[in-house]
Structure formats: C-alpha cells, structure tokens
Amino acid sequence: MDLKAILEHHVVDQIWARIPVGPVSLPLSKHLLMMGIVSLILLVLFPVIIRSRSAALAPLRSMIEIVVLFLRDEVVVPNMGHKGAAFTGYFATLFFFILLMNLIGLVPYGATATGNLAVTAGLALTTFFLVNFSGIKNQGFFGYFAHLVPKGVPWWLYPLMFPIELMGLLIKTFALCIRLFANMIAGHIVILVFICFIFIFGAFGTAFGLLVAPISVGLVLFTLLLELLVAFLQAYIFVTLTAIFTGAAMHPH
C-alpha cells in the first residue's frame, strides 16, 4: 500500500491532455472538469431556478435569494458602502463559484478544484485586480497609491511604510490563495489518513483492523461534516475578505 500514491490520486490534479497555446500549454484536467461542471450549474441551473415561477423550485429560489441578500446586506454594503451594492452580482458569483467548487469535492467521484493552488491563485488574482481596479477608479491612480499608507503615520516613516503596504497588497492576495487552498486540502488529507489507519492497524492483525475501523469511519464522518462547514465558511471568508479589501481601497479613510 502506497499512501503517497493514494494521496496523490485523491488530492492532486490529474492532467489528461494539454493544449499548446503559444508559449504556455493549457491543461485539461480533472479539476478543470469540476470547474466546468460548476460553471455549467451556475450558468444553466441558477438562471432557470431564479427565473422560474414554479412552486417546486421555490425553496431553491429562496435559498439562493437568502444567500444573495445576506451577501448584499451583511457583506457588500457594510464594507463597501451603498455604492458597492452594484457589486452584489460579482460577490454572489464569487461566493457560489467557490462554494460549489468546495462542495463538489464532497460528492463521490468529485474533486475539489479549490484544493488546487493554481485555482485559488486565479481566484485571488481576480480579487487583486478588483481591489486595485476599484481603488484606482475611485481615487485616481496617484490618489490610490498616495492613500496606501494609512493616515496618522509620521512622514519619516513613509519610505518604510510605502513598500510594506505595497507588499501588503501582494501578501493579502497570497494569503487568500493559500487560506482557501489549505483549508480545502486539509480535510481531504485528514479523511484519507483516517481511512489509511484502518489498513495500517489491519497490517498488525485483522482483529486490530476491525477494531479500529468503526472509530476511523466515525472520525471520517465527523471530518466530512466539518468539511461541509468549512466549504461554506471558506467561501464566506473569501468573499468577505474580498469585500473588505475592496471597500478599504475604495474608501481610504
């Protein structure tokens, strides 16, 4: 039994083919497939659910509506002001995109696309672009960079503070990327380890393995539920942090 192979098989992306476009090659992989499924759900099912007037879809519609309204009233508007309400669609898309990519990893044969550094890096980059774009749009190019250093800092600290704040922009993005990736991958690894415990103890003796199996399965179920919580929590955190960063860039004071 090769634990490393099992882990790699379940956690790491599997690239099936590559499309060479100029200097880079675009991979076709399992995580891309999952992302595609999520995109398809978002593009097809969500508009259908939202636009339909049938009573059967009403609960789903209410669920989506509750989430969107929560994002608008509790995340977007408090952090970005009423001007930010126009961004509700962006944040709703971000939330559901991350949430569904998190959840699809809990489905059998599914894989967690957000448990891939490249994917979370892509998401963090969109946040990075949004933060800088809205900051420059609201305060002007020079105004935005002039306001990077918080008010009240003595002038002689500016040469020190400005590079730190500039780095802070990148670090925030990097932290977003790593936070989501680590949270999504950790649960999977823990589950795999718990399952491997059964075979590790089974190697000492069949009875030993049978004794450990129920405990392991119980722990796996617990971790699975924890992952369900984390899936929602991390989507929420990513969206909230994006809103906070964007709001801070839009309104420096």
Partner: peptide, 23 residues
C-alpha cells in the same frame, strides 16, 4: 507530492477566464 504545491499556470488562466465569464 510536490505536484500539490506546484501551481499549474494554465489552470490559473482557466480559472480567471471561467470566473470572468461567469461574472
């Protein structure tokens, strides 16, 4: 296991493209 922490830049591109399209 180093594949876990080696970002596949092509996938980053897919993610950004996908996300912008979705938005």
């Amino acid at each position: 296991m180093e594949a876990l922490i080696r970002p596949e830049l092509g996938l980053t591109f897919w993610t950004i493209a996908c996300f912008i399209l979705l938005v």
